[in-house]
Structure formats: structure tokens, C-alpha cells
């Protein structure tokens, strides 16, 4: 079986995934999180794999199409999160919007308030139940505490200080 034919389902699933993602992001979706993106990716592969089965394509393709599709999808996730959520990217974009592409630090602080970074992340963490809010105080839920302890253990294992 040709290597191109073996890789074709991965490419078809990738096209279906990106097409569905762009369409949904334009038309329907307000929550543009990674979890939904992962569901679309998984669904796209399943649809293509079922299609390949009914078209009589040799099942050997799964050995190549699953890792290849997973690799391409994860690379796209990197691009998506790295662009959408990156503080550094937002700084570059804010400076780019100014004529001459120059900006004083004080002006940057005005258009991209540091506190916004915290409030927007805290809202997301609360929404996903990592934190709960009591009055004006935030605390970890049991899920958040478990996750936090795991991060601290990994940081210790790797000898990472000054994270963040």
C-alpha cells in the first residue's frame, strides 16, 4: 500500500477538522476553548476513519494516520493557544497597532492593563472550578488543590525556581 494512501486519512481528517473549526468559530460558538477544539478534532478523525472503512481502504492506515493526525493537531493547538492566550503576543500586537510601531511602557499599561491579565485568568479558573470565590477571596477547590500540588512536585523534580 502506497505511503501516500496510508497518510491520506490523516490529511482528510485534518482538513475536516480545520474546516469545521473555522466554520463553528465564525458562526455558532462563543466559548472558543481548547476542549471544544479537541472534541472537533476527535470527531473529525472518527468520521474519516468510518468513511475509509466503508470505502474499503486497508485498515493498515490507522498505524500512520492516528499518530500523524495527532501530531498535526497538537501542532495546531500550540499555534492556537500560543497566539490566542499569549501575553507576549498581545504586547507585540498592541505596539503594532500604534503608528510607527513604537509605544511607551506607560501607554502599554494603559491599553493592556496588567490587572486585566489577572482578572480574566481568575474568571476562567473559577468558571472551570479550579477556584471558588467567597466574597472577595479566592481559594482552590479540591480539583485545583490536587492540580496545584502536582505542579509543585514537578517543579521540585525539575529544580525549577522562579516560575511564572
Amino acid at each position: 500500500m502506497s505511503i501516500l494512501l496510508l497518510a491520506a486519512p490523516a490529511l482528510m481528517a485534518l482538513i475536516l477538522f480545520l474546516g469545521t473549526h473555522v466554520l463553528l468559530w465564525h458562526v455558532f460558538v462563543s466559548d472558543k476553548g481548547v476542549l471544544l477544539l479537541a472534541k472537533i478534532a476527535g470527531g473529525s478523525y472518527v468520521v474519516v476513519a468510518i468513511g475509509a472503512y466503508f470505502l474499503g481502504i486497508d485498515g493498515e492506515h490507522v498505524w500512520i494516520s492516528i499518530p500523524l493526525f495527532s501530531f498535526c493537531t497538537l501542532a495546531y493547538f500550540h499555534l492556537y493557544v500560543g497566539t490566542f492566550r499569549s501575553v507576549s503576543m498581545r504586547i507585540l500586537e498592541e505596539i503594532y497597532r500604534v503608528p510607527g510601531h513604537k509605544m511607551a511602557l506607560a501607554d502599554l499599561e494603559r491599553v493592556f492593563p496588567k490587572e486585566f491579565l489577572f482578572t480574566s485568568r481568575l474568571d476562567i479558573l473559577e468558571e472551570h472550578r479550579w477556584f471558588h470565590k467567597n466574597g472577595d477571596r479566592y481559594a482552590c477547590t479540591s480539583k485545583g488543590a490536587l492540580f496545584g500540588k502536582m505542579i509543585l512536585r514537578i517543579r521540585t523534580l525539575y529544580g525549577i525556581k522562579n516560575a511564572g
Partner: peptide
């Protein structure tokens, strides 16, 4: 784990147990 903003917020709040926005910033 190294640079994740949300991850650092989680470990900070875990360390402080309970914190206001001012404590966190």
C-alpha cells in the same frame, strides 16, 4: 509548568490558601 500564568495562579493561591485579587497580584 515553567511559564504558565494560570498554573502559577493556582500554585500561588494554594500556597496562600485564600487570597484577594490584591494578594494575588
Amino acid at each position: 509548568i515553567y511559564r504558565g500564568f494560570s498554573h502559577t495562579l493556582v500554585t500561588d493561591v494554594l500556597r496562600m490558601q485564600s487570597a484577594t485579587l490584591t494578594d494575588i497580584t
